[in-house]
């Protein structure tokens, strides 16, 4: 554990809490992509199957359980409790365009051709692109609530901090996971446009709106 990984995990946790708080306090999931959230639940489910087979640490187990539970909690709030507020007209990204190629790629490029390892690889690839329906939704509506933009900033920062963690681990631990690093870089690059808008608008007290 190093400082980049820990702050990355905290940013990830903060993002999830921010989203749950936004939905709970406003009693609405308007502006949140249910498709991105479904894919995040799928990401956590397929990645953390090693909870059953492999104990790493109490921290690791606790965080994994929180991530899985919170992702299904978010789905419950979006699709059951506050279903009426779900903005499905703007959530039109086709999930199969991501899930199918990602599933194919995880069969072709992985560390080990075994069920758990393929599912882990699938989750890493899927996570890297799972935010696209959310970003697509914002580009369609042209804006995002400030709390939603804080959520996205925390969520994007998490993988960027993990890149620093991988640099650290490469130099100090001789650890290098090509699949995680490439996917993590793709994931972070997808947020760059959003980061720019967030810093130039939200940090100056304005709402996140897209240039016409």
């Amino acid at each position: 554990m190093n400082v980049f990984r820990l702050t990355g995990d905290i940013a990830h946790l903060l993002a999830i809490i921010l989203l749950l708080m936004k939905i709970w306090k406003t009693r609405s999931c308007a502006g949140v992509s249910g498709k991105s959230q479904m894919m995040f639940a799928l990401v956590f489910t397929t990645r953390y199957l090693d909870l059953i087979t492999n104990f790493i640490s109490l921290y690791n187990t606790t965080m994994k359980m929180i991530f899985i539970a919170s992702s299904y909690g978010t789905l419950y709030l979006m699709f059951l409790k506050f279903r009426a507020t779900y903005d499905s007209n703007h959530d039109t990204f086709r999930m199969e365009f991501l899930v199918v190629p990602v599933a194919g790629l995880s069969f072709l490029v992985n560390h080990d051709f075994s069920p758990l390892e393929i599912l882990w690889t699938f989750s890493i690839y899927l996570e890297s692109v799972a935010i696209l329906p959310q970003l697509f939704m914002i580009s369609k509506t042209g804006e995002a609530e400030t709390i939603t933009s804080h959520y996205l900033f925390a969520l994007g920062s998490y993988r960027a901090l993990y890149i620093l963690n991988w640099v650290y681990r490469f130099y100090f631990e001789g650890f290098f996971d090509l699949i995680a690093v490439v996917a993590g870089c793709v994931q972070t690059v997808l947020y760059c446009d959003f980061f720019y808008l967030y810093i130039t608008k939200v940090w100056k007290g304005k709402k996140l709106t897209l240039p016409a």
Partner: peptide
Amino acid sequence: PPPPTDHDEL
């Protein structure tokens, strides 16, 4: 180093 398959990261 060989590719890691005991995934300790989240």
